[in-house]
């Protein structure tokens, strides 16, 4: 298992390199640049600015310098558009915020989605099943830019229970609505997925064997059915978690959390190459680590996978 993890980590390094090189050239292909504006800068000023940011060198030299700085000093360079801020500072201030409410959002998705799915499967074709499935479909198609204002309307403006935005060092009141707004549609997805796989597992021959042993229903669900029923949910949760972190732009903007989504959008508009590249690397590392964690979880659940490691 340890061996396998180390091997996977070794493979991660070339993956990250490939991504950096690819993203670096791809961004430069896009028209415009960080210093393009409606009123062009005088050529002498432009030359000075370009030299200041090292952009007068050939592309491959810039790439080389960029990678060298990361490797030797963990320095992702200065931001091209936000004066006096380095990419390191931007990531350090925004990423923990996004990661924090992203994590709680994932917790919300799992602790609500899985029980809802299991209950719907156990009450198959009953009122509760239909109610659950209906709610799940409804919240899956309910966009977060509709859900978020409704929540603010109710919880902040009408009842005054929760603050309508901000972060305030990550107190729980400030996390609740971003986490729910981010997670609701995925929670519905998890509920539907869990319901389907639970139904399938409950009809499988080994569950019939468990029933023939005279085990109480509770034991059959917890000990025999839940583990295999959660495998598809696990597969779904990996990419979803990454997607929640990277796709949290709307939530960051709407709730003014100061998360990293806002920086990503700003960076894309102003062609802030260093911010975009730095965030791409962060997302890449995040994706790779979550996939590794997922594979280890798979191995924990499924003995056949464990043997293959």
């Amino acid at each position: 298992m340890l061996n396998y993890s180390l091997r996977r980590l070794a493979f991660a390094i070339p993956t990250i390199f490939a991504l950096v090189i690819f993203a670096f050239y791809l961004m430069r292909l896009a028209p415009g640049g960080p210093f393009t504006s409606e009123k062009p800068l005088p050529p002498a000023v432009m030359a000075n600015v370009l030299e200041r940011y090292g952009m007068d060198e050939p592309l491959y030299v810039q790439l080389f310098t960029y990678i060298k700085n990361i490797l030797c000093c963990f320095d992702f360079g200065p931001s091209f558009s936000q004066k006096d801020r380095s990419v390191n500072q931007i990531i350090a201030s925004g990423f923990p915020v996004t990661l924090t409410y992203g994590f709680w959002s994932a917790v919300f998705v799992l602790i609500c989605g899985i029980p809802l799915g299991v209950i719907a499967a156990l009450r198959h074709n009953s009122f509760w099943d239909y109610l659950m499935t209906g709610l799940a479909i409804f919240s899956q198609i309910f966009p977060n830019f509709v859900l978020a204002p409704i929540m603010v309307l109710l919880f902040t403006l009408s009842w005054g229970l929760l603050p309508g935005g901000g972060w305030n060092g990550g107190q729980w009141q400030y996390i609740v609505m971003p986490a729910i707004g981010l997670g609701t549609s995925y929670m519905a997805g998890v509920a539907r997925l869990t319901r389907g796989s639970m139904l399938e597992v409950l009809n499988s021959p080994f569950i019939r064997t468990a029933r023939a042993k005279g085990l109480p229903e509770r034991t059959i669900i917890w000990r025999h059915a839940l583990k295999p029923a959660l495998l598809p949910t696990l597969t779904y949760m990996g990419p979803v978690f990454v997607y929640m972190i990277t796709g949290s732009v709307f939530i960051d903007v709407f709730f003014s959390t100061g998360g990293i989504g806002q920086d990503f959008i700003d960076g894309a508009y102003s062609r802030d190459y260093s911010v975009l590249l730095g965030l791409a690397i962060i997302y890449c590392v995040l994706t790779l680590s979550i996939n590794l964690v997922l594979d280890l979880l798979y191995a924990w659940i499924d003995p056949k996978v464990r043997d293959a490691l």
């Binding site: 021959p205 080994f206 064997t209 023939a212 005279g214 085990l215 583990k227 659940i301 056949k304």
Partner: peptide
């Protein structure tokens, strides 16, 4: 009832299933 049957299953009347590939729980 199911609870009454659970006192008989395996203890008094047991069943051997046809396909040993699928009758065992692969995760246990």
């Amino acid at each position: 009832s199911n609870d009454e049957l659970n006192q008989i299953r395996a203890q008094k009347i047991a069943m051997i299933f046809q396909d040993p590939m699928s009758a065992l729980n692969p995760y246990m």
